[in-house]
């Protein structure tokens, strides 16, 4: 499997005009990883809040 960085280098090498500008091509894997991890963490935290929800209403006393 070709890793993203080698893919990136290959694309940069193939297009000499782009080398100077140093633009990163591709990399959607990184983007999806970031959004996926964030969504997973937020969902897990929401679940943990649900699990730990107060059993009785908070204003039951006084």
């Amino acid at each position: 499997m070709m890793t993203l960085s080698t893919q990136m280098l290959w694309i940069l090498a193939a297009t000499p005009g782009q080398v100077g500008s140093g633009r990163i091509v591709g990399g959607w894997g990184y983007v999806w990883a970031c959004y996926g991890i964030t969504v997973a963490m937020l969902v897990l935290y929401a679940v943990s809040l649900w699990v730990r929800r107060p059993k009785a209403p908070t204003d039951a006393k006084e």
Binding site: G22, G26, Y30
Partner: peptide
């Protein structure tokens, strides 16, 4: 992005 491409969407 002009330099970072799609990675910048992070």
């Amino acid at each position: 992005d002009r330099e970072m491409g799609d990675v910048q969407r992070i």
